[in-house]
Design a protein around this nucleic acid. Structure first.
Length: 361
DNA sequence: AATCCTTTCAACCGCGCTATA
DNA sequence: GTATAGCGCGGTTGAAAGGAT
């Protein structure tokens, strides 16, 4: 007896989502917040299964998603994290809050894997073991477990932990030490090109029409063109014409402002705790929460911390503690810093675990 | 211009985990 | 302790777009 289907197969629409469906879903979630996906199809009248709705939201419609080309910095982070975590895309995505796990997974499969393979060929490496482990979704460093003794394995495991901590620390510190590490001229066209542009523009048009007809739109309008945060992180109109990229050049109701406007568009993945007041103004505290994307909701704004998944968990934690770093990250920093010197002496710095990836850059 | 091949990525599928009754 | 529902995750698929012949 197999597992029952998540929903009735009959009468369920499949395939690409239309802008109209997107609008229905977005407007529903705007009112009810993400969660309880089971009820979404019935309440919205969408002929989609709940799973499809959730996927569409988390991978596409959710605010804060950056689309388009990956920056060199993002690429580097993905390569590092993939080497450490394996194909745990959701975990990797948690360190790139603007990217979805699906996006990262696709990018890895279509770009980075080839890039690494080419790099290996150029270097003449014959590292099939390493590659196989990636294929199987396991961290590289565990590849030799079966070949080494238990003592060696334990030692290796410890080394892996140190290396992981250090690499994560490095990846995170890239965020904090420099808000915009890539020179402007080297920045990819992420802000000016996106494969989603065409459909996003369709949605934007539909949204504008929809909002014109919406009673909400006339009640309170806020035009957000650009907001420079206290550390040069800018949010808002730096991006392209896609509403999902953070541009809110149209006059919208507050609810939709909050849906589409707080996407950080910088390329360094510096995550910010952004407060939005009732006038649509943004503010950010002094501290940068590396790896955490947090939005403090105020009245009339959807409570995005209630969103499911990792953001909810992390946001909740930060809402409660309001500390600059999560405990884990603090631990990583502290411990990795303490270990750096020791690891270098042991010859197990980043070079060993990341040898082939770091050479890329 | 037509056809075939390759690449990209949105969406689907199935399984595992967790919460709840 | 067990069954069930719901959600999240990773692997895979397939349509569309772009490139090569």
């Amino acid at each position: 007896m197999g597992r029952p289907p998540c929903c009735e197969k009959t009468g369920v629409k499949k395939g690409p989502w239309t802008p109209e469906e997107d609008i229905i879903l977005v407007s529903y979630i705007q009112e009810h917040n993400p969660g309880n996906w089971r009820n979404v199809p019935t309440n919205t009248g969408l002929l989609r299964c709940s799973k499809s709705c959730r996927l569409r939201w988390t991978n596409y419609l959710r605010p804060g998603i950056k689309r388009g080309n990956f920056t060199e910095h993002e690429e580097k982070m993905i390569i590092h994290l993939q080497a450490l975590l394996g194909n745990r895309w959701a975990a990797i995505a948690s360190y790139l809050p603007q990217r979805t796990d699906n996006d990262i997974k696709n990018y890895w499969n279509t770009h980075l894997k080839k890039k690494l393979n080419n790099n290996k060929k150029v270097e003449g490496h014959d590292d099939h073991d390493h590659e196989n482990n990636h294929q199987e979704g396991k961290p590289t460093s565990s590849s030799s477990q079966s070949k080494i003794s238990k003592g060696q394995w334990e030692r290796r495991l410890q080394t892996d932990i140190h290396t992981a901590k250090q690499a994560l620390c490095e990846a995170l510190s890239l965020n904090t030490e420099n808000n915009n590490p890539i020179p402007e001229e080297q920045q990819p066209a992420v802000q000016t090109s996106t494969t989603y542009a065409s459909s996003a523009e369709n949605i934007a048009k539909l949204l504008q029409n929809w909002m014109k007809n919406s009673p909400k739109s006339s009640s309170s309008s806020s035009k957000i063109t650009q907001m420079s945060l206290n550390n040069s992180l800018s949010i808002g109109a730096v991006s392209n014409s896609s509403p999902c990229e953070g541009t809110v050049n149209v006059t919208t109701g507050q609810g939709l402002d909050s849906l589409f406007s707080f996407n950080s568009s910088n390329n360094s993945d510096v995550s910010q705790s952004v407060s939005v007041d009732e006038g649509g103004n943004f503010s950010t505290p002094e501290n940068n929460n590396a790896g955490i994307f947090q939005v403090e909701s105020k009245p009339n704004f959807p409570d995005f911390k209630a969103e499911n998944g990792k953001f909810q968990e992390e946001s909740k934690q930060n809402m409660e503690t309001q500390v600059p770093l999560t405990l884990l990250e603090k631990w990583l920093f502290d411990d990795a810093n303490a270990q750096t010197q020791e690891d270098q002496l042991m010859g197990i710095g980043m070079g060993m675990a990341m040898g082939e990836t770091t050479d890329l850059f």
